Simulated scan of single mutants.
Amino acid sequence: MTIVDERPAVDAGTLVSAELRDTLAADVRAKYDHITADMARRGVGQMLAFVAASAASAKPLSPSPLVDDFWHAFVLRTKAYADFCHEAFGKFVHHQPGFLDRQEHGGGKGLRARTVEAIHAAGYLLDPEFWPELDIADCSQCHANCHNSPKHATDKAD
């Protein structure tokens, strides 16, 4: 008989102090007035779950646009972010936006699905409100060579 030990998922927001979590939530709320206090608190947790999953993944992962906003808030607090990465993972988790090869990484939906699976496998809570594009998107992140991206190569007749 095989016994499966299913542990409850953990709120990754607990990876940082309550003070830092509140500071990051306040930073995001100051920039985006539509974000409620509860959503900001949950968003910090989703961002930390993403960063933790990224630190453990051998393959690239991609945040949702909303989770990316929270990651930007943390990255801008450079010392706190660097200290967190080194204490939690023993290495720095870089924010490297850019276009990933669709064939190699499965496009946006495949990449985002891998991200969500990695967060789940790492044992963190997943809040679907922060990953809505799993049902609709087919991109990896904003301005990553999309048709309306400033980086998109267009055919221009001179």
Rank of each mutant, 00 (worst) to 15 (best):
F70Q: 01
K151D: 11
A53F: 01
P128S: 09
L126F: 11
V116F: 09
G90K: 04
V93C: 04
P150I: 00
L15W: 03
P63R: 05
H152E: 12
S62Q: 08
F92G: 00
L20S: 10
P63N: 03
R7K: 14
G45C: 06
H143W: 09
A121E: 12
M39C: 12
H105P: 04
D127M: 04
V75L: 09
A12C: 05
S62V: 09
D11V: 03
A26I: 04
V28G: 02
Y32S: 12
L126K: 01
A12T: 04
L134V: 03
R29W: 10
D135H: 11
S140Y: 07
K156F: 13
A122R: 00
E6H: 14
R21P: 08
A157L: 14
D127G: 03
A122N: 06
Y32A: 15
S62T: 13
A88L: 09
D38V: 03
C146P: 00
G98Q: 06
D11N: 08
E133G: 09
G108I: 05
H147N: 14
I3Q: 14
G123F: 05
T154M: 02
A121K: 09
D22V: 03
L15P: 05
S54D: 08
L100A: 07
G106K: 03
L24A: 02
V75K: 07
R77H: 13
A37G: 02
Y32K: 10
D38F: 06
R7S: 11
G98P: 09
A153G: 11
D83I: 04
A82R: 15
P8G: 01
S64N: 07
N148P: 07
R112T: 14
R41Y: 10
D69Y: 08
W131T: 12
Y124V: 01
G106Y: 04
H143E: 11
A157W: 15
L134N: 10
S62K: 05
A18W: 06
H147P: 10
L76K: 12
C85P: 04
L111A: 00
N145S: 10
A157G: 12
A52K: 02
A18R: 13
